[in-house]
Design a binder for these strands. Structure first.
Lengths: 145, 145
DNA sequence: TCTTTATTTGTAATTCTTATAATCTATTCT
DNA sequence: AGAATAGATTATAAGAATTACAAATAAAGA
């Protein structure tokens, strides 16, 4: 479950019969370099200059390919559009209710939750995610003024 | 954070200046009776018979009112449409990757996560949610046949 | 290089959700 | 009770995100 580097992601893709295209590489690159959690549109806009002819459909297609390959996760929050996060290691997200900022948060040791859920529900558990909601320091400061 | 009964939900609404209408009551009733986690459209369809003239907008409007009042939570997963869950007590959701079934799952004691997140990120934490993903017994059985 | 097959592109279509304005209904004030 | 006010519903249109589709293009292996 840990595809740390861009290289690793590329080789994961090659192992299935997924071809490497310039667009794909650029999308992966952007996902790995940006520490934020971009939307499909963020990605599209950021690559507009390098790929003036790229279609939005390409971004969506490839995000699905990456998701299926397990190297990218889709995050759906309250807001309209999904965000995408390259799978690096288990971490959670702290999200600001005001401005939407997302901060990574490490908290190990929730494997137990999966084990218990398996026993209680009979599901074959694969994964879990957690989001923590609140107000970020900046927004707190703003509201106090 | 615990509005166990329908009655309680109604009185919460009355305490703000939200009027009780037949449509509102029916939506609340449905949310409380259905142990599933219906989409706006599920709710709309289920009330079609009783309220032939009801608009989808009414469902959406009221779900927002309920959300703002804190008696209903919106759940956004991978699939296209949001699901709604009346706030009863803290619980999490186990979701089937195949058929989308959602099962409630109680796991106390994750307040610590919020505390730690506050310290690490400086956020003013209010809430958290967790989803556990896997394959339900039925879908596992199906795939083995 | 050639062939096969995946991928990209551009556009149209779909779906979910929200905005708007008109109508209607409940509550309040006199 | 009756009028005024504010809130709610309805119907429809608009908006935004995502997907479907068919034609054109490009990658990978023989």
């Amino acid at each position: 479950m840990a595809s740390a580097s861009l290289q690793e992601a590329v080789s994961v893709l090659k192992s299935t019969n997924v071809r490497m295209t310039p667009q794909r590489h650029a999308i992966l690159e952007f996902l790995h370099s940006s520490m934020s959690h971009p939307t499909a549109d963020d990605i599209y806009k950021s690559l507009e200059e390098r790929f003036p002819n790229m279609s939005v459909a390409t971004v969506y297609n490839n995000l699905r390919v990456f998701k299926d390959a397990g190297i990218v996760k889709e995050l759906t929050y309250g807001d309209s559009s999904s965000r995408f996060d390259c799978v690096t290691s288990d971490h959670y997200h702290v999200i600001c209710n005001d401005c939407g900022k997302i901060v990574d948060f490490h908290y190990p040791g929730l494997d137990e939750v999966e084990t218990l859920a398996e026993h209680v529900t009979g599901f074959d558990i694969e994964d879990h995610r957690m989001e923590i909601y609140g107000t970020c320091p900046e927004c707190t400061k703003m509201s106090k003024q």
